[in-house]
């Protein structure tokens, strides 16, 4: 079979491969190369070593974006997973309406980041207007506004994954623990959570990388205001490219650092939680 299949390489592989080269491989390689050059457009790049990387690290806006992003990610990973887990646990009990409630919680996930940002801008500004304040005057408002928005968006998605995980735990396990006299807390701690580790791995991975890569919601809710203090890494990279003339090389260097950071964190997280998974 393999031999006759091989001759069909152009039909099966070439279209996707060509698009993959245009849409990913070539831009990726060129991106790495340009991070070591000074350029305005792609064609007039001159090599300048690691100068872009030095300028990127020394840029106080980049550092502040990093701190904001890290704090935001820590808060949202904890909040989203905790709340999604509680909701999943509740909605796998047998009371009326659980299916409708699942539908409701998942809905915001399908709405685009830009649309979400403007929906919540209206709500937050409406509340803050009573105290003669607006969302864009304070870093604290921007931070917690973004946190609420992202929780609202992602709890439903993680809830679905936790529900799938909870339903995969054999009923005998909890039943047996129940007969052995384990209370609710003990059943949760020694039966449910260890068996749910694969779902926890996936959800922490997703919330972690989503947090670090957040762009649309950041742009539409605060756009980095006030004074770029709510600017996250992805938005900072965008603004370095398109908002500061002569900084394109630095923008590309920041993008490479950002890429390494996201990949590194993802791998680290997978290693940490994978070791805690149990075999069923």
């Amino acid at each position: 079979m393999e031999r006759s299949l091989k001759r069909y390489f152009p039909i099966f592989v070439l279209p996707t491969l060509a698009a993959f080269i245009i849409g990913f491989i070539w831009p990726f390689i060129q991106g790495i190369y340009l991070s070591f050059t000074e350029f305005r457009t792609v064609n007039n790049a001159t090599f300048n070593g690691i100068e872009n990387y030095i300028r990127a690290i020394k840029d106080p806006e980049f550092t502040s974006a990093f701190i904001f992003t890290a704090a935001f990610t820590v808060v949202t990973v904890v909040l989203i997973n905790l709340l999604a887990f509680i909701v999943a646990l509740a909605l796998t009990q047998s009371f009326k309406g659980t299916n409708i409630f699942r539908t409701v919680f998942f809905l915001p996930n399908l709405i685009g980041g830009i649309v979400l940002g403007y929906i919540w801008q209206l709500i937050f500004n409406g509340i803050l207007a009573r105290f003669d304040l607006t969302l864009k005057i304070s870093t604290t408002f921007g931070f917690w506004g973004l946190v609420i928005l992202i929780c609202w968006q992602q709890i439903g998605y993680m809830m679905i994954i936790y529900i799938a995980g909870l339903q995969a735990i054999p009923g005998d396990y909890t039943e047996a623990a129940h007969i052995d006299g384990a209370n609710v807390w003990q059943r949760l701690r020694h039966v449910i959570i260890p068996n749910l580790m694969p779902s926890i791995t996936i959800c922490t991975f997703l919330t972690l990388t989503n947090g670090f890569k957040l762009f649309d919601q950041n742009l539409s809710l605060t756009a980095g205001e006030p004074m770029k203090s709510t600017e996250m890494l992805a938005l900072n990279i965008y603004n370095t490219f398109y908002g500061r003339v002569g900084w394109q090389g630095v923008g590309q260097a920041k993008a490479v650092l950002f890429f390494l950071l996201v990949v590194g964190l993802g791998l680290l997280q997978l290693r940490v939680t994978r070791t805690r998974e149990v075999q069923q």
Binding site: W26, Q30, L34, V42, T209, F212, A234, G251, Q252, F258
Partner: peptide
């Protein structure tokens, strides 16, 4: 796993 910002400009 590659974030879009990595290839944003070149793409």
């Amino acid at each position: 796993v590659v974030p879009f910002q990595m290839v944003m400009f070149t793409l």
